[in-house]
Design a protein around this nucleic acid. Sequence first.
DNA 1: GTCTATAGTGGGATAGAC
DNA 2: GTCTATCCCACTATAGAC
Lengths: 187, 187
Amino acid sequence: MPNVTERLTPRAREIVEAARELLEQEGAEGLTMRRLAEQLGIRAPSLYKHVPDKATLEVAIIATGLEDLAAALDAAVEGAAEPLAALTVAYRTFALSRPHLYRLMTDRPLPREHLPAGLEDRAAAPLLRAAGNPTRARAIWAFAHGMVLLEVSRRFPPGADLGPAWQEGITAFQADASRSSRKVGTE
Amino acid sequence: MPNVTERLTPRAREIVEAARELLEQEGAEGLTMRRLAEQLGIRAPSLYKHVPDKATLEVAIIATGLEDLAAALDAAVEGAAEPLAALTVAYRTFALSRPHLYRLMTDRPLPREHLPAGLEDRAAAPLLRAAGNPTRARAIWAFAHGMVLLEVSRRFPPGADLGPAWQEGITAFQADASRSSRKVGTE
DNA sequence: GTCTATAGTGGGATAGAC
DNA sequence: GTCTATCCCACTATAGAC
């Protein structure tokens, strides 16, 4: 299983695209080779002429998701007055608009050996820049990730207003940023 | 499917206990009625004399996990000089020592109708007290939840030192707490 | 409380023809 | 590039005997 997004035949690309749609409509359990074939109007065994197995297909889906995330975050910081706030909003929007893809992307260790080189770094770069150092970037990522997952898993009490909670975290980390840059500069 | 932890026969309790162990050893996919029976030295159909179905069993597992979490957090705050720091440490310890149970507890909406009354509130109370208001409690919870999940999913870069990231978040929210209590008091 | 037998469903994947 | 036929696996759950 070599790098996945590269050297994908056009037909394979269509299959990955259909798989993403199916995943989003039906969730991870609904993503089966049989249903995917059905969505494409073919039989399941035909898929194996274009994709070696289901695991490879999932890696390809994850790769497209990371590409999209990187693009969304890049667009969000561009010329933003408050990069941290802009990034968290974009991150939340990304995740809530494709919750099942987001889960697939974060549920498991990244299949780094099978991802295009530099992709993970590209997706992480905007936040790393806004946060100033890896430690703060990780803390802020964790906050956003936790908010998003608790939101899509509907684990907060029903009716909880989450806007203020997001704002609370953003404010806390912004203040922390100025305080810690006074103290230690960048890491 | 009525409230689950109450009115469990002794044999049913043993089954739930074995299920928790199996879950932790094998992960959520390894928790099947067949394997559970095997662990107990019986056949799968025999389980159904004691437990109505698998969904009920999962709810019972979640309930025991919430009980344990509530107890761990209560113990952590008791007499702690820095309740917020103590709580995050206890939360992390809880989750990392039973990652699959933790996932099961947070993956999906809480089955509130089938949980003992007040259990969710009991588990949430220590953080709510330490945070001062629900909004901040939610933000801090999200931070801890995100850290824990990224940690157990091994999504951080390999070798990343996560102690500083935890500290960063704790510090940020502690500072935020004093600032916002000056401004608005409790919610 | 446990068993055997079994129903019913659905999954990933391969062989080989067209 | 797609098909049919098929294998083999695993799962939840029920019926009914002991």
